[in-house]
């Protein structure tokens, strides 16, 4: 047990040193890389490691007779969480999300330190000591809080009320609800039921299973499936249409959406927000193919009211591409990213 706890304590110390380095800008945040494809679970595992580390540290300090009071344990863990979110995670997390996490952190720390009477009393004791002010130090602290707390509250209020020249925050709806149908080049498409005419099997019939089996594989390799190379001249049907879609993409779209379809094209950073990252599981992977068809055809100016503040410079591609070309480019986007369009069956 002691060996395990020592190991935990070691992890805790190492983690804290690393985090300290990141806070004081001695160590870059990406020293321990967040690996693409595993980032969400990696983050949770890292925090779990810290919790194990803190348990080990607490155990060792107890064993050495230097137990950290429960009051400081609670406050310390919350401060750690806030610093971790601010300095470890990159790119930076918007304040609104950090505030949400901070509140949850505060609530859960309260749940932990007040889960039983003994812990709760231990936590309260330093606060009660200061309020009772039985010793000189506590009396001094009480006076200090009497002055500092109103100043802090006043400072926060002043800061909150002070007019600022910053742009206001935005609640942007990235995927506004599409219309029931859309008219492109004189033909009306019902978005609920329309299908990509080029998503076909060798018999020429619509077959999503077939196309799914031929997309680029997911995961870090992102390799083409064997015998499914669209640039092989012999290929016909679905793979041929993917190739044609790719040609259209590289002639028209990659300048903004990027060679890897990750929204980092040549002109991408001229815009704010930058173009959509199709490799993100939250974009085309969760949308029906007809949704993409509507967005490509109508562009930023075709967004409905719900799409306020219409922060999209995407051109209405129906003015530049034929319906067939739009369907083919969509086919290529799904093939390249390794995602499947959403269906409802």
């Amino acid at each position: 047990m002691k060996a395990l706890m020592s190991l935990g304590a070691l992890i805790g110390v190492a983690g804290l040193l690393l985090l300290g380095g990141m806070i004081f800008d001695v160590v870059p945040s990406n020293t321990v890389r967040l690996v693409e494809g595993y980032m969400p679970i990696q983050l949770l595992l890292e925090v779990a490691c810290f919790v194990i580390g803190f348990t080990g540290l607490s155990y060792m300090m107890n064993a050495m007779g230097m137990a950290l009071p429960r009051f400081w344990q609670g406050i310390g863990f919350w401060v750690f969480l806030m610093l971790y979110l601010k300095f470890r995670v990159y790119p930076p997390i918007p304040f609104s999300v950090r505030a949400m996490y901070g509140t949850v952190g505060l609530v859960t720390v309260f749940m932990w330190i007040s889960a039983n009477e003994e812990d709760w009393n231990k936590f309260k004791q330093p606060i009660l000591n200061v309020l009772d002010a039985q010793t000189g130090m506590n009396r001094l602290l009480r006076y200090a809080y009497l002055v500092l707390i109103p100043i802090l509250v006043g400072g926060f209020s002043y800061n909150a009320m002070m007019p600022k020249s910053e742009e206001p925050i935005e609640l942007r709806t990235v995927h506004p609800a599409p219309p029931a149908s859309t008219k492109v080049h004189g033909k009306t498409y019902t978005l609920q039921t329309s299908q990509n005419p080029y998503r076909v099997n060798p018999e020429g019939k619509y077959d999503q299973e077939f196309s799914n089996a031929n997309i680029v594989e997911q995961g870090m390799g992102r390799l083409m499936k064997p015998n499914a190379n669209p640039w092989d001249d012999k290929n016909q049907g679905y793979l041929k249409y993917v190739r044609e879609g790719g040609e259209i993409f590289f002639q028209n779209c990659h300048f903004c959406h990027g060679d890897n379809l990750n929204g980092r094209g040549l002109h991408a950073f001229a815009f704010n927000p930058i173009p959509a990252n199709f490799t993100d599981p939250g974009t085309i992977a969760q949308l029906q193919e007809t949704f993409i068809f509507w967005r490509v055809a109508k562009g930023g100016i075709g967004l409905p009211n719900e799409g306020f503040p219409w922060a999209s410079v995407m051109p209405p591609w129906e003015q530049h591409l034929t319906v067939d070309e739009i369907w083919k480019v969509i086919l290529f986007e799904y093939w390249h990213t390794g995602y499947y369009p959403r269906t409802w069956d």
Binding site: P40, L43, V89, P94, A276, N277, D280, T283
Partner: peptide
């Protein structure tokens, strides 16, 4: 660097 945070 984009509308969606790459981690969160």
């Amino acid at each position: 660097g984009g509308q969606q945070h790459p981690v969160l």
